[in-house]
């Protein structure tokens, strides 16, 4: 090996090592973004598109927006959703009308694809940020999304 190349190699090596150490020092100084899970429980908002648990929002008068059309049930790829309806007399028109009786959602078979919320014509169901789903009894995975005694929100009169 000739002497010039030998000495040049040493200096190039030192330069490359300094480059590497510069990169790691940048990493060292970078703010750490690790989430502290049990501490930030309930405080962290994961964003609108986070698919945690399917919910049906109710307003203060216990009204939901589901018109019991069943599109979500038909769109569901593995039969997670069951929309059970009953006929009820509409007070304004006097005719029978299909209303929601029970909205059954089986969390155990849900694949969180989001086809139900996307196809809902009324935005009656949406995803919440709650992702802590584990239970000891599989029966608890079958949830009823509409509350007891809830009814369809009356049409806004403009």
């Amino acid at each position: 090996m000739n002497a010039g190349k030998y000495i040049k190699n040493i200096f190039v090596g030192i330069y490359r090592l300094c480059q590497g150490m510069y990169i790691t020092m940048l990493n060292f100084c970078r703010p750490k973004i690790t989430e502290q899970y049990p501490e930030n429980r309930g405080k962290k908002i994961y964003g609108e598109r986070f698919r945690g648990l399917l919910t049906m929002p109710h307003d203060s008068e216990n009204h939901h927006k589901c018109i019991a059309c069943g599109i979500c049930m038909n769109n569901c790829p593995n039969g997670t959703i069951k929309v059970i309806t009953r006929m009820e007399k509409d007070e304004t028109t006097g005719r029978d009308r299909k209303v929601l009786d029970r909205y059954i959602y089986n969390l155990g078979s849900c694949i969180f694809c989001g086809l139900c919320t996307r196809s809902c014509p009324q935005q009656a169901i949406e995803w919440s940020n709650n992702f802590e789903h584990s239970v000891f009894d599989p029966g608890k995975l079958i949830k009823q999304l509409n509350r007891e005694g809830s009814s369809l929100a009356p049409k806004k009169t403009e």
């Binding site: 060292f28 973004i33 690790t34 502290q36």
Partner: peptide
């Protein structure tokens, strides 16, 4: 702790 910071982690906490 220092190893964790170099690897963009928090380390024992």
């Amino acid at each position: 702790k220092i190893c964790a910071f170099f690897q963009c982690r928090i380390g024992p906490n």
